[in-house]
Structures are given as structure tokens and as C-alpha cells.
Design a protein around this nucleic acid. Structure first.
Length: 460
RNA sequence: UCCUGAGUAGCUCAAUGGCAGAGCAUUCGGCUGUUAACCGAAGGGUUGUAGGUUCGAGUCCUACCUCAGGAGCCA
């Protein structure tokens, strides 16, 4: 058996062959030519004197063909005995073939094995089924599989498109601190840590209060970064560490905020459809559901009261188990039902102020309502955006802080924003992982981020 | 925190209280168009942990551990 070794250095690879270096995603441009790919052996089938190695390189997969009679003996033996996920530099001629899923195959001419995985320690992840626990324990390897790679590529586009929407609409990115001295919203569990000698610090659970301050400096701002919640939630929608993008805009009221959210989500979906139809196919997402988002027509806007009536009707018809109690927030089954009634994301606004955060502006037409909006993604994915107009009165904000039993000292700087040139302003936050889960049609948010942090898992 | 379910070969799973099994993976052999290829053979086990019931426990009981799904809360 040929025993290729780690004999290849990255900087000399370009001299191995005169063929142009390319990626699997763009290999169609080279039909009829020889090219060089750098990647890994994804799978290997054989039929007597014919080998079918499948290669992957992070942009896609392609099947190679190696007839014994057409290549040197050493090359054939090397490939025949190559172990899955060994790293390789492959040179071959690109050929269109209707039998290939991607439309192209590679007639292999040369292979340099960068590292051969030894027989005694085979690659642990099989192409066949595996359980959640095993896959999460091997997340560092699981992300190599075509479906997981496709999800991560879509995630990258969603993150870029989200930032791009604000960058091209006059926003300034102003990221808040990740270490904070107190709870922004006071109630939820926070990750606590020592801050030098006598102080505690907490990992941020939202940058909102800080970007209200930067909005007062710059007008239209957004932040984009990780947030942390020590909630003991074990569901398909929760992570303890997740990424949030949050715009905050001065002189913007609730209606304008909803329009902003609508334009923002539409832009993201459009960008994903532009760039990732192939990936969405690998993932198994029905793209017609996404095309419905970018089709003409506004996102439905539903008041809390209307949503409540919708839920009562549904309960009367036996479509949901529990009758919604007027005045309560919506539970997950309620949100799922509401979102399933629409093709587009639905914006539910003006919840009872009592169930919402202290900083939300009351509706002047009915002060028991908060000027807030939750955007519920279609197909039962639930809340992906939560936002509101903020309290702009010093006196009202101060009394709210008192009512909620929050430490006044910690909020002095926040109150200053209402003391010195207060203006109406609004903002929202979108959790990237829930957005990715919705757009990709995933069962669980743990697949939307390279290394998910959940209640029971912090390895790898 | 509460409710429910699951832990058996590297992986996915079977096994009426009565001999510990299969598929995939690995190794060896066969096949010139395979698409998670297929065919033949071999190796591979402290049934999550600790007790208990029983002639006999993977199976029944108790406790614990781990994981999963859901509720609440949230993005």
C-alpha cells in the first residue's frame, strides 16, 4: 500500500501543477480544463477498477472518477486506500455530466495527500444517521458535513446583509460593552463574574440601553454582537450565548419602527435568495416560502387585541389547547398559531404595558398599552424581533424604575438621556440564530451557530 | 424550577424476566458508472452508575448521573 506522508507544504502547492487553482463552487467556469482543488476526501466508492472519490472544499462537493487503466498505478492505490476526511490537493479535468448532482465531475489526474488519517483512528462522523448528543460532542467535525456547512454559509450572508442594511441607510455601528455593571432589564438571570477586587460584572444581555445613548449622539445607530442569558431554558429556540443586531433611531415612533423592521427582514431574505439557492436545496428549505417574503405586499400588522381575538377563535374551534387569557403575554403555542395564519412575518403591536419592559413608552391613546412590537416569523418560528418606542419622559422613566424595584444608582446615566435633550426614539433587537433557523427551516437553533452554548453543553 | 422520554458494539438501533443481535463504520476479499453504492468474510460488549427483587435482570424496583423534548421566560 502506498503510504503518503505529510510531505506537502502549503507554499509549494501552486507549483505542483500548472492547472489553475479553483473552488468547487466555481468549477463550472473551467469545463474541459484541468484544475486544482484543495480539500478533503468526503466519501469513496469503488466498482472494481473504477474509483469514485467525492471531494469537498468548503464551497461544495464534487465526485471524481478514477479508472485504473487511465492513471498511474501508484495514484490508483493511494486513492483506493485513502481514508475519509484525509486532506488532499486534487488535480483533474472538469467534465459536465448529467449523472452528477451538481452537473460536473472531475476526471482525476493527480492527488497529493496532505495528511492521511491513519486506519487505526478513523474519522468518527459517518455519513449515516447520528444522534444529537454525539453530533454536538463532535461539533468541531460535524460542521464539515454539507448540510452544516451550507447553514453556516447562509448565516454569514444573513449577518452581512443585516449589517449592510443599516450601513447603507445612514446608520452608524456603535457596539455597546459586553461587560456591564448591572442588569439592563433587571430581571433575567445574568452570567456573573468577578471584576477585579470588590466588584461584580455581568455579561450583557442586551446593548439596548447603551445604544440609546449613542443614538442621542449620532441619530441612527446599531449594534451587532454576542449577548448572554443564563436562563434555564431548554428548547429548540434558546441558546445561552447568541448574536443580536439592534438598531436605535431618534425621532422614530412605533409605526416607523415597524416599517424599519419590515425593510430590514425583506432585505435579508432577498440577499439569501440571491446567493444561496444551492445551499437552501442542500438544507432542504422550501424556497417558495422565502419568495413569499420578498413578494410585493406589506407585512401584516396585528394589534394585541386582534391577536387575542384570533386566539380565542382558534381555541373555540379546537385548534389550540389553552384559551389565551386577556392581559397575558402570548405563549409559544400562541405565537406559533398566529404566525401560521400568514405567509409573511406578522407584527404584533401594543401589548399590555404590564407584561412588557419598564422602558417602553405607553400608548397615548391607551396608557395601559405599550408602544411595542414583536415580529413573529412564519412557519411557527416565533418571535425573531422585539422592539419598542422608548419612554422619553424623565419623570415617567424614573417612576418606572422605582416600580420595578431596580437600583436607581445604576440607572442614573440612563436617566440623564431624558434629562438632557430627550427625544422620542425607538429600536428593536433581532436574534441572528432564530432568524437563521427560520430562513433555513431548521428544527433547532443549535445548528445555526458554529458552536452553540446551551444549558447543558459548553464543549467543544 | 417543573413535566415527559431515552441511555445496549465506534455510530444508529433490536432483544416476551431465560444463549448479547442487526445495519453502518473498521480490516480483508470481489465488482468499470457508483450516488449515505452493492456482494462475501472477520474482529469488535463491565447493557450509564450504585444498590435491591429473583433460580435467573439489558428487561422489574429504588436512588443517582447524563442527554433530549416541552412548559415557564425570552431573541
Amino acid at each position: 500500500m502506498a503510504e503518503p506522508s505529510e510531505r506537502v507544504n502549503l507554499w509549494c502547492m501552486s507549483t505542483v501543477s500548472s492547472a489553475p487553482l479553483t473552488t468547487i463552487a466555481s468549477i463550472g467556469q473551467y469545463e474541459g480544463q484541468s484544475v486544482t482543488l484543495r480539500g478533503w476526501l468526503y466519501n469513496l466508492r469503488s466498482s472494481g477498477k473504477l474509483l469514485f472519490p467525492t471531494f469537498r472544499d468548503g464551497t461544495g462537493t464534487i465526485q471524481g472518477i478514477v479508472p485504473k487503466a487511465a492513471v498511474p498505478e501508484e495514484l490508483f492505490e493511494t486513492l483506493k486506500n485513502l481514508t475519509l476526511e484525509s486532506s488532499v490537493v486534487v488535480t483533474g479535468k472538469v467534465r459536465a455530466d448529467s449523472r452528477a448532482p451538481s452537473g460536473f465531475e472531475l476526471d482525476v489526474e493527480d492527488v497529493i495527500v496532505t495528511q492521511r488519517i491513519p486506519d487505526e483512528t478513523p474519522y468518527p462522523i459517518q455519513l449515516k444517521e447520528a444522534g444529537v448528543d454525539f453530533l454536538m460532542e463532535h461539533r468541531h467535525l460535524w460542521i464539515r458535513t454539507p448540510r452544516q456547512s451550507a447553514i453556516l454559509r447562509v448565516r454569514a450572508t444573513i449577518m452581512r446583509a443585516a449589517a449592510e442594511y443599516f450601513d447603507t441607510n445612514g446608520f452608524f455601528r456603535t457596539d455597546p460593552p459586553i461587560l456591564t455593571p448591572n442588569a439592563c432589564e433587571g430581571t433575567s438571570e445574568l452570567f456573573e463574574m468577578e471584576y477585579f477586587d470588590n466588584d461584580k460584572a455581568y455579561l450583557t444581555q442586551s446593548g439596548q440601553l447603551y445604544i440609546e445613548a449613542t443614538a442621542m449622539a449620532l441619530g441612527k445607530v446599531y449594534s451587532f454582537g454576542p449577548t448572554f442569558r443564563a436562563e434555564k431554558s431548554k428548547t429548540r429556540r434558546h441558546l445561552t450565548e447568541f448574536w443580536m443586531i439592534e438598531p436605535e433611531v431618534t425621532y422614530l415612533e412605533l409605526d416607523g419602527l415597524m416599517s424599519l423592521a419590515e425593510g430590514f427582514l425583506t432585505h435579508i431574505v432577498a440577499r439569501v435568495l440571491e446567493a444561496h439557492r444551492g445551499d437552501l436545496k442542500v438544507i432542504g428549505k422550501d424556497v417558495t416560502k422565502l419568495e413569499a417574503i420578498t413578494a410585493p405586499g406589506e407585512f401584516p400588522r396585528l394589534s394585541y387585541d386582534d391577536a387575542h381575538k384570533m386566539l380565542l377563535d382558534a381555541h373555540a374551534k379546537g385548534l389550540i389547547e389553552n384559551a389565551h387569557v386577556y392581559g397575558d403575554d402570548f405563549g409559544s403555542p400562541d405565537e406559533t398559531y398566529i404566525s401560521n395564519q400568514f405567509e409573511k412575518p406578522v407584527m404584533v403591536h401594543r401589548y399590555p404595558a404590564e407584561v412588557k419592559a419598564f422602558y417602553m413608552q405607553p400608548d397615548p391613546l391607551d396608557p395601559t398599552r405599550a408602544l411595542c412590537v414583536d415580529v413573529l416569523a412564519p412557519e411557527g418560528y416565533g418571535e425573531i424581533i422585539g422592539g419598542s418606542q422608548r419612554v422619553d419622559s424623565y419623570d415617567l422613566l424614573k417612576s418606572r424604575i422605582e416600580q420595578h424595584g431596580l437600583p436607581m444608582d445604576a440607572f442614573q446615566w440612563y436617566l440623564d438621556l431624558r434629562k438632557y435633550g430627550s427625544v422620542p426614539h425607538s429600536g428593536f433587537g433581532m436574534g441572528i440564530e432564530r432568524c437563521v433557523a427560520w430562513i433555513c427551516g431548521l428544527e433547532h437553533v443549535r445548528e445555526t451557530i458554529p458552536f452553540a452554548r446551551t444549558l447543558n453543553r459548553i464543549y467543544p
